[in-house]
Every structure is written in structure tokens, then in C-alpha cells.
Design a protein around this nucleic acid. Structure first.
Length: 475
RNA sequence: GGCCCCAUAGGAUAACGGCUAGUCCAUCGGAUUCUCAGUCCGAAGGUCGGGGUUCGAUUCCCCGUGGGGCUGCCA
């Protein structure tokens, strides 16, 4: 049975790189009918926090990556938080076993200069401890070579003399990363360790520990890192990096996962729902090269997903997003029936890539006191016959029914024809009159969705307000 | 400094050792008898450098260069 894990440390938000690692683990587990385990590596007391743990789980859920065992749901190999495991004495016990095997020792550190070890012993150095010396447990690195096979990199070989003896239990009694991972991966029966390439050089250290215990090695696979535009590690400098950031910026989890999947994974068809790709997934189609995060491609992909999904699903996601991240704008959905809103969204999504952009596009349809953009006011004023255009359109709309796009087109083209003004000009003046902006969904479609009453009201409103713009600039 | 990983257009990828190095994003140009941030069409742009092996190298080997990682009582 395949068992893989994702083991974040709760010292920050979930990073896209972490999410990608989690995604590949998840995909592999699902494909192999195995288990995906979530373990929290909170052995760094200084930097770890419960809030970050909460946020990481929240982000993972948003991504749709569900786990079979974890700190919140438990499992047969718990607990799943290293701090809790430490309380049970798990790491201490295993460290003592290594001491019994003479493969690790107590290291007594100098009082003044804690980096210096003044005594190595297999017996607990109670006297020194009482006097206030730091005491750690260090793993003894033997001479020789450590090699392993990496699923992506192939055969790896390290000479042991590049490693010093490594601390496995800190003076505060907590295990270090390299020790805790080994003990936990062993106890949790992890079969495949799939993680970022930044751990490649740690692997031989961990393998030495496996070997000291006589434990069977899992498979290892180190996937390349995600970099920013300048090839330095992706950081806030390059833009947002946390899952939460992209969520807040109006990206869909499906799209973000899709992007993380194709980033360094060659596929025939680029746009997909990653949950449909479980069967096709294979570890060896993952690229072996670090990759640069391309915000533009992500946005493009997000637009594709936005346009492709069921409008009702999009409505739900949009509504939710407003409530979570744009509380001040959430009111726009009130006092409208869902049907109208969905029709609005249907035509607006054709032009946008993110929920942020969608919000801007949708807003004027849902607010009667919509604002007028400066560009519109400017072009309204510079076109001397603006008011005339709007009045003519108003008159024509009043006594005509318009049920389909063609009727609306005919009517508007007729306005232009009779006034002998270019269609483009007429349409732009009317567009802005109805929605306050010069960039909107198709004008005829917009009018159809607005309906007769709103259209007429809005024409009247702009005629009134537009009059005052003209007065203000009169010579 | 030491050890390790990586290298095809600006970014992501494709090409049993063999056609003119293919595709997606971005860029530029055109179209969409209404806007464009949407859609369609088109263009430009690449095998990091130097040595080998070979009839033939993007592909295999060596060196260099560049980028990245590790080198913590961080993970």
C-alpha cells in the first residue's frame, strides 16, 4: 500500500511550492489507491504557531487536497503533530535507542561557547546538566559513503566525510528536523517521500539514520523548486506566493491547481480539472528542472476555467469570495434575484480572467447608483451631441419591446443612422450611460440583460447627470 | 570555500542519435461592419560556450559558464 505524506511546518502561509508538492503527493496517492497523510512539523517552537497551522489546513482544503490521516481527523499512526509526538517521548526513545547502539551520544556544550562540545558520553551527564550546560544528542556519522536512488535524479552518492555529527535532539528536548522526519516516516509507514529539491542534500543524513536503526528505506523523489522571474527563489518580491494570496486575488482553486500541475509536468492538453487526471498521473512525467512561476499564464488559465465552468458554480464561488474577501462589495448581490445575477455574470465572464476583474465588470449591472469613469465623462463632454443621442435612444426604447439581440441592434443602429453620427460614437455614449464605463460586455447583450426598465431608468439618470457635466465645462 | 542538482525562444514544455527543432503563455501585427481585459488569424523569437564519440548530436561523454540547493540546537 502506497503511503505518502505532506509535512509542512506551520511557520507561514501555504506557499505555492508547498501546494505543488502536496498536489503531486495527493495525485500519486489517489492514483495508487494509497493514503495521503498530513503531518505538522512544529518542532521549531520559536516560529511555529497554531494560526499558521489552521491557515495551512484551510488552504489545503480550498485546494481540494483531502487527506486520509492528519492532525484534525486522526488515524492509526497518530498523533500527527510533532509537538504532540514529542510529548509522548517518541523521539527521545528512539534517540536513546541509538545511544544504546552507540550510534549516538550525549554532547555536553561549553557554557561560554555553546558551539563547542566539551564532552561526548553514552551516559546522561547529570552533573553538567545541573550546572547549566546545554546537552544535546548527536548522531555519530560513520566513515564511508551513502547512496540512494532518487526517482527523478537517479543514483545519488555522497561521501560521509562531508558531514559532521548531527544534532538529533536539541537541548530543549525537541528533535531536529532530520531526525523527526526519519522517525515519523518510519512509524507512519511512509513508502514514498516526495518533497522539494531543497531536501536533496539532507537525504543522506536521513538515510544514515535509517541505516543505524536497520530500517528499510522509502523511495525518494525530489521535485524541482519554483523560482521567480529572476531565478531567485519565488518570494513576495515577485508577487504573491501564498495560496491565500491567490485566493484573495480571485483565482479559482481549480485553475491554480491546474497551473501548478502543468508547471513542470508535460501534458498533451493543458487545461483540465486535476481530479480528472488521477489516472493519467505518473511520477516520471514530472520535469527535472526548476521552474519559473509565470503569473500571466496562471491568469490566462484562470480565465479559461472561469469561462468553462457551470455558471451556477461560478455564482457560488463568486458569492463566497465576496463574503470572505470583499465584504464591502458583498451588498451588490442583495436585492437581485439569482437569475438576473447569473445572466449578468454569464456575459461579464467572457471578458475577464479573475474574480477581481469579474467584480468590476459585474458591479454596474447590480448597482443603480453606478459611478461614471473619468474616461466616459471626458468622451461624453467632448461629443457635443451626447445628450441628443441619449434622448433619442430613450424615446426609441420607450415604445419598443426588445426581446432579442437583433431588435436591440436594429434600434441602436437606427439611432445612429437618423442622427447621422457614427455607430461607434453612439454606442460608446450609450454604453457609458448605461454602465458608467467604456469597457463592458457587448452593448446589445448588456441591454438585453438589463431589461427595458433598467435601461430606460439609466438613460434618464445619465441625461440628468450628464447635463450638469456640460454646465460645469461651458465656456 | 566544500558537496550536490539543473541547463531547448522572455516563461513552460516536445522532438527512437536522423525531415525545415513542434506546442502553450507572453510580445508584435491584423480581424471581430460597438468597446476589449474576451475570441479568431498571422509574425518574430530557441538548442549556454568549448572540446570529444558518431556518417550524423538538442539528445551520449568531458571541461567551462550560469542558476539553484545543502553546508544550523530552521524546516
Amino acid at each position: 500500500m502506497v503511503r505518502v505524506r505532506f509535512a509542512p511546518s506551520p511557520t507561514g502561509y501555504l506557499h505555492v511550492g508547498g501546494a505543488r508538492t502536496a498536489l503531486f503527493n495527493w495525485l500519486f496517492a489517489r492514483k495508487m489507491n494509497g493514503k495521503f497523510i498530513l503531518r505538522i512539523e512544529d518542532t521549531d517552537l520559536e516560529r511555529s504557531s497554531e494560526e499558521f497551522e489552521f491557515l495551512i489546513l484551510d488552504s489545503l482544503r480550498w485546494c481540494g487536497l483531502d487527506w486520509d490521516e492528519g492532525p484534525d481527523i486522526g488515524g492509526d499512526h497518530g498523533p500527527y503533530r510533532q509537538s504532540e509526538r514529542n510529548k509522548l517521548g517518541i523521539y527521545q526513545n528512539y534517540a536513546k535507542k541509538l545511544i544504546d547502539l552507540k550510534k549516538a551520544y550525549y554532547a555536553v556544550h561549553d557554557l561560554e561557547n555553546p558551539k563547542e562540545v566539551i564532552l561526548k558520553t553514552f551516559e546522561w551527564p547529570e552533573n553538567y546538566f545541573k550546572k547549566g550546560h546545554d546537552v544535546t544528542i548527536k548522531f555519530k556519522v560513520e566513515e564511508g559513503e551513502t547512496s540512494f536512488n532518487d526517482l527523478l535524479k537517479g543514483k545519488m552518492k555522497f561521501s560521509n566525510d562531508i558531514f559532521d555529527d548531527l544534532v538529533i535532539i536539541k537541548s530543549n528536548g525537541f528533535p531536529t528536523y532530520n531526525f523527526a522526519v526519519v522517525v515519523d516516516d518510519y512509524l507512519m509507514k511512509i513508502t514514498h517521500v516526495i518533497r522539494g529539491e531543497d531536501h536533496l542534500s539532507n537525504t543522506p543524513k536521513q538515510i544514515m539514520i535509517y541505516q543505524a536503526f536497520g530500517w528499510e528505506l522509502p523511495e525518494f523523489m525530489h521535485i524541482p523548486l519554483i523560482l521567480g522571474r529572476d531565478r531567485s527563489p519565488l518570494s513576495k518580491r515577485h508577487g504573491g506566493t501564498s495560496i491565500n494570496y491567490f485566493r484573495e486575488q480571485g483565482y479559482l482553486s481549480k485553475a491554480l491547481m491546474n497551473y501548478l500541475a502543468i508547471l513542470g509536468w508535460s501534458v498533451e492538453e493543458e487545461i483540465f480539472d486535476y481530479k480528472d487526471k488521477i489516472e493519467n498521473f505518473s511520477l516520471n512525467s514530472i520535469s527535472n528542472k526548476s521552474v519559473i512561476f509565470d503569473y500571466q499564464k496562471l491568469e490566462w488559465l484562470n480565465g479559461k476555467h472561469l469561462r468553462k465552468m457551470e455558471i451556477e458554480d461560478l455564482f457560488g464561488i463568486f458569492h463566497n469570495w465576496l463574503l470572505n474577501f470583499r465584504k464591502d462589495d458583498a451588498f451588490i448581490l442583495e436585492n437581485h434575484n439569482k437569475d438576473y445575477i447569473m445572466k449578468v455574470m454569464e456575459i461579464c465572464r467572457e471578458k475577464v480572467n479573475t474574480l477581481v476583474q469579474l467584480l468590476e465588470m459585474v458591479k454596474p449591472f447590480l448597482i443603480d447608483e453606478y459611478e461614471y469613469s473619468e474616461e466616459y465623462i471626458k468622451s461624453f463632454i467632448s461629443e457635443t451631441r451626447s445628450l441628443e443621442i441619449l434622448k433619442k435612444a430613450l424615446d426609441d426604447f420607450k415604445d419598443k419591446e426588445f426581446k432579442n439581440i437583433e431588435d436591440i441592434r436594429t434600434l441602436l443602429e437606427n439611432v445612429a443612422k437618423e442622427l447621422e453620427i457614427k455607430k461607434r460614437v453612439v454606442f460608446q455614449i450609450i454604453r457609458g450611460a448605461l454602465l458608467g464605463k467604456l469597457i463592458t460586455p457587448g452593448l446589445f447583450e448588456s441591454i438585453k440583460v438589463l431589461g427595458k426598465n433598467r435601461t430606460i431608468q439609466r438613460l434618464k439618470r445619465t441625461i440628468e447627470i450628464g447635463g450638469s457635466w456640460l454646465k460645469n465645462v461651458s465656456p
